[in-house]
Write a protein that binds this DNA or RNA. Structure first.
Lengths: 205, 205
DNA sequence: TTCGATACGGTACGTATCGTATCGTAGTTG
DNA sequence: CAACTACGATACGATACGTACCGTATCGAA
């Protein structure tokens, strides 16, 4: 059972305990190097050199370079893009999706994009992504949909997961597959238009 | 200007011409090895060995292993998932999205997923993806939306690209970020439910 | 205090793959 | 025949991999 260093419970084992400052310097070095050289060119040896630690110190904590990045990113998911609950479902999603879009636009998106990319060929990363990035948010979001149906704001018979796919799917689509230019332009205006479109539907009423 | 070997115009130049069988055997070897070992472990040397060619023969045609995979995949995009035009926009997208979902479920999806993943750290692959996989289909799809608005089937004022994001975004979301289990379950029933939800909207009428 | 256990920075090692260069041979054009 | 390019093969220096040590540092328990 491999453990992420940041999630360690630090049981009272015999021997010298791991230095948290060492862990932090490795995480910091990984993100810095990734932003500078691109996460493609990230190497364990490079991270070790930048952090001023030995390779063995890194391999004692993580199995490879990508696990370090994952740890660094997932450390504060809840802080960066929490699900906000407002009076209506529409307003809840509008606000929550704006936060996600904001994180995609910024430095967080520049890290998350290669991370999701790498997850396509790295099963453990895939699982970590599902667990730390998606599942928690989904759970709350489903409740918002159900509450909207109960209150009469939303149509009866809606499948919560499909609703969430329709709302959040476009964000990931735009993040991962920009088809015009290179810029991810997930502006607030785009979110508003998207929410209006999906909530209102496509058919003429 | 690097050229893809499959797109070569094969001008009448002096010297020995490239053997098309050699090109085909390289493309075949790349896909086979990718499926067997995972596209992560794909190497130029491995492809050369499997195809029975020298490394230089590969480097004469492609700059790296991923370009070979991209060539092999994009060769027949139009054949695998064309945009179908039906009497209504709703039926057009329902049929077209079913085809995309079918390709995602099959072997094509197993290749496209790592390819999109790699595109997150490979700019040229990113561009090739936008050009060969997305742009052509988008163009036709936008017309379908506009026609739907003109005919009165769809609401006036809809932004075609946002409509397409709402429809296709969920498919990519499910392909790249499965959050329950490992199976991509883009069934026909899911597509139907998705189309119904997006076309009908979320709000109670 | 002594002792076992683990962390730490550092280094050496064999393996794998990269992308380039250079053979000699084969096939095509002029 | 001459010029030119494709082709398979191999050698090459360069990186990064992951493992195995080393000697030292820091903990808990006896």
């Amino acid at each position: 059972m491999k453990e992420n260093a940041t999630r360690e419970e630090q049981k009272k084992t015999a021997g010298r305990p791991r230095d948290p400052r060492t862990t932090r310097s490795i995480l910091k070095a990984a993100l810095e190097l990734g932003m500078e050289l691109g996460f493609d060119g990230l190497t364990v040896e490079g991270i070790a050199a930048r952090a001023g630690v030995g390779k063995s110190t890194i391999y004692r904590r993580w199995p490879d370079a990508w696990s370090i990045v994952a740890d660094a990113v997932f450390a504060d998911v809840a802080r960066i893009a929490p699900v906000l609950e407002r009076a209506t479902a529409r307003e809840s999603f509008r606000a929550s999706m704006r936060l996600v879009a904001r994180s995609f636009r910024g430095q967080h998106g520049e890290i998350l994009r290669p991370l999701i990319g790498r997850a396509q060929v790295d099963k453990s990363l895939r699982l970590a992504l599902a667990e730390h990035w998606l599942s928690a948010r989904r759970e709350i979001s489903r409740k918002i949909v159900r509450r909207g149906i109960a209150s009469g704001e939303l149509r009866a018979g809606l499948e919560p997961d499909i609703v969430l796919d329709a709302l959040y799917g476009p964000l990931y689509h735009r993040l991962l597959l920009p088809y015009e230019g290179d810029v991810v332009h997930l502006s607030d205006a785009y979110i508003d238009a998207l929410v209006d479109t999906v909530f209102g539907g496509l058919e003429r009423k």
